[in-house]
């Protein structure tokens, strides 16, 4: 056991995901040895994030104002919405620079085994958006897992009767990968979704 203030920080850091006691100890001693100003900046960043960040009222992305920067950006195509499980997934799709529409964060995926149903996700809010914002296409970008696929099927059943086009991200081979190492399920989907050149 260290002196109380050091031990307190170690205990707090060890509660973070992926940080064990040893890593927490290393981080705590690092913080102990940096300039006071740097330590204050770190503490300030944590407090400010907690105080200022909220969810976008339209898409449920994290933001520091009523609406996130993507929803406020008038140059974005409002007729296309990409549905993701978590706010972190928006950054991943944005990195592709292929999508110029808006997003909708569900807050998870349907999991029959865990008892997570559509009512626990932001499905109703999406239906309202489809109506209000004249959305033409909903691109489902949930994970290619049983839960993600189930969510995509549910969304298709929910939204198609509203006259909106529902599409799903394609599954296939990773760029730079070796065909030899592809599992048969992914390769099967890649074959099913092949494109004419």
């Amino acid at each position: 056991m260290y002196e109380a203030p050091v031990q307190r920080l170690i205990d707090e850091l060890a509660r973070l995901p992926g940080i064990g006691q040893k890593s927490a100890q290393r981080l705590a001693f690092h913080i102990l040895h940096i300039e006071a100003e740097d330590a204050n900046r770190l503490a300030g960043a944590i407090v400010a994030m907690r105080e200022q960040v909220r969810l976008c009222r339209r898409c449920f992305n994290v933001t520091d104002s009523e609406e996130c920067t993507i929803c406020r950006d008038l140059r974005r195509d409002s007729s296309e919405v990409c549905v993701v499980e978590r706010a972190q997934d928006i950054v991943v799709v944005e990195r592709t620079q292929e999508f110029r529409g808006r997003y909708h964060v569900l807050g998870g995926s349907i999991s029959p085994i865990e008892g997570i149903g559509p009512d626990q996700l932001r499905m109703r809010e999406l239906v309202v958006r489809v109506d209000d914002e004249k959305i033409v296409e909903v691109i489902v970008a949930t994970n290619p897992t049983v839960e993600g696929d189930t969510t995509a099927l549910y969304l298709a059943r929910l939204l198609k009767p509203l006259g909106v086009k529902v599409t799903r991200l394609a599954s296939g081979l990773p760029v730079g990968g070796d065909l030899d190492y592809a599992d048969e399920i992914t390769l099967g989907r890649a074959l099913a979704g092949r494109r004419e050149l």
Partner: peptide, 27 residues
């Protein structure tokens, strides 16, 4: 290695929900 993927289940909402109940009760 895969013996049986049951890939067809994942393409149908009612079947995947039914499979979820089968797995839950066996679990």
């Amino acid at each position: 290695s895969v013996i049986e993927a049951h890939a067809g289940l994942r393409g149908d909402l009612d079947r995947v929900l039914a499979a979820g109940t089968m797995v839950e009760v066996i679990d």
